[in-house]
Structure formats: C-alpha cells, structure tokens
Design a protein around this nucleic acid. Structure first.
Lengths: 66, 66
DNA sequence: TTCGAATGTGAAGGAGGCTTTACATGGAAA
DNA sequence: TTTCCATGTAAAGCCTCCTTCACATTCGAA
C-alpha cells in the first residue's frame, strides 16, 4: 500500500528516528513503512494520522485506488 | 479498538457471513473484529470503509479517543 | 420437537507487523 | 581522510491477523 509518510516527515524536517520516537515504534518500523515493505497495523495508522493531524486516507493510499 | 461494524452491518440486514463474502474474508474474521478480539489489518480496514462508503475514522475508534 | 440459520469461540498453522541487534552505504562536515 | 548522521536492510523472535475445521448455543420457523 502506497503512502505519503516520507513526504510528511520531510516537510517537518524529521529524521526517521525522530518520527519513530514520536510514534513510539522502532526506526526500522518507520523505514519499512516508508519503503513499502509492510503496512502499519490499524492502531499505528491511527497514531500516524493523529500525529500529522489528518485522516488515515490522506496518508495511506487504498490498494483499490492504486 | 472499538468499532461500529456490527451496527453498520445490522443497518443493512447482513449476516456476518454476508459481510465476510463482500469483504472476501472468513466469517470468523468478521466476528473477531466485531467482538473486539482483534483489529483488522490496514488494507482490510480500507476495504470495510469503502464498502460502507465512509472514512476509516467513522468506523473504528482510535484507542487515544476512548 | 426438529431443523436450519446466525453467532461465539477454540485450536492449529501460515503470513505479516514490530522488536532488537547488527552491519553496510552515502553524504555532509570537520 | 575521518567522523558522524541518516538511511536501508538482514536475521531471529514474538505477537497479531487471518485462515480452516470444528463444535456449542440460541432462536425462529416448520
């Protein structure tokens, strides 16, 4: 599933490590999500959306909408 | 994580089996999500939101918002 | 009462999310 | 060049998601 995490993070000038700490996950998890190696769990997706103050749908692109 | 899946399903008069078929998952998965035994994956959450034509946030309640 | 549909749950197994540890690369700065 | 930071990725392990098969309960209809 595609996502705009890297863009949002870069807009704020955060490193993957910075973001990981704000989300309370490992840097590797942030990296894996950004590089599309796997999708976050739903609770983590909520946390990400809340951190960036937007909807989950604004960050993650539904597979059906390519 | 709380959700309104059972309500949405009931509003449409669908059985868990009906919903499972529309989502292409097992009836047990629908039951487990409705009864709160586990949260759906993000892709499945998207599929559910699309089926009910609303946002993920309208169906699933963020842990941080009780 | 008997039947069938709907729901809840358990066990076991496969796939995926997330962790820690660890190593490699690239680029910017000293 | 050397150092340091940011990033990418691999391995092993644990937990969660989702499956199938199976069984129990409840309830309404026949």
């Amino acid at each position: 599933m595609n996502n705009h995490l890297r863009t949002l993070r870069a807009e704020r000038g955060w490193s993957q490590q910075d973001l990981a700490e704000r989300l309370d996950v490992s840097r590797q998890s942030v990296n894996a999500i950004e590089t599309g190696r796997y999708d976050p769990s739903l609770p983590l997706a909520f946390k990400i959306a809340e951190l960036f103050a937007c909807a989950i749908e604004d960050i993650f692109v539904s597979p059906s909408k390519g």
